[in-house]
């Protein structure tokens, strides 16, 4: 076991966990931030996507010991009132079916829009590699474009 101080959603947290603990389980089990989801455990599905600084990472395969001073943002810390343009667009397009993958999808879209404020369909194909088992891709794509418009 070891002690780590990590910055999550602009707050510092000190946790006492084993060094190989994936960030996902620190978020979910130690910090009670359960919006970040477990889907596969091998960085394939993206349900566990969070931001490290401005980049999307798959927290199920990112050990807490590697976080260091980098700033982590989870779905809970994306906005104060759930009104980030990506959250708004997801709601307006009524994207979710079961909803389980959507926090990861939202975080992946946020990272994409930080990098490319006006992504093309090809950019979306390349960046949005998260699995939605319900198949909401048509609406996700429209919501990413809508969020880009809102951010103008």
């Amino acid at each position: 076991m070891a002690s780590y101080t990590i910055t999550v959603n602009n707050k510092q947290h000190t946790v006492d966990v084993s060094p190989d603990t994936p960030l996902l389980w620190v978020l979910r089990d130690e910090l009670n931030l359960v919006g970040t989801k477990f889907g596969c455990g091998i960085a394939q599905c993206g349900a566990c996507t969070v931001l490290m600084n401005d980049n999307a990472i798959r927290s199920c395969s990112y050990p807490v010991s590697a976080v260091g001073v980098n700033k982590i943002t989870t779905i809970e810390g994306l906005s104060d009132n759930g009104d980030h343009p990506v959250q708004q667009a997801w709601d307006e397009m009524d994207v979710p079916q079961c909803g389980y993958c959507q926090s990861g999808q939202v975080m992946a879209a946020v990272a994409l829009l930080k990098r490319k404020p006006h992504p093309t369909d090809e950019d979306i194909n390349a960046a949005m590699s998260n699995i939605c088992r319900c198949g909401t891709y048509v609406r996700i794509r429209k919501a990413v474009h809508m969020a880009a418009e809102k951010t103008k």
Binding site: V34, T74, G82, W90, D91, S103
Partner: peptide
């Protein structure tokens, strides 16, 4: 056209799913 009533909770990461259950004394 009525939106999914859980949209807001889903999109802000609220504990909605079975896997999110946390109870007093619960072991994983």
């Amino acid at each position: 056209r009525i939106k999914n009533i859980d949209n807001r909770n889903i999109l802000t990461g609220k504990p909605l799913f079975g896997i999110d259950t946390r109870r007093e004394g619960m072991l994983f």
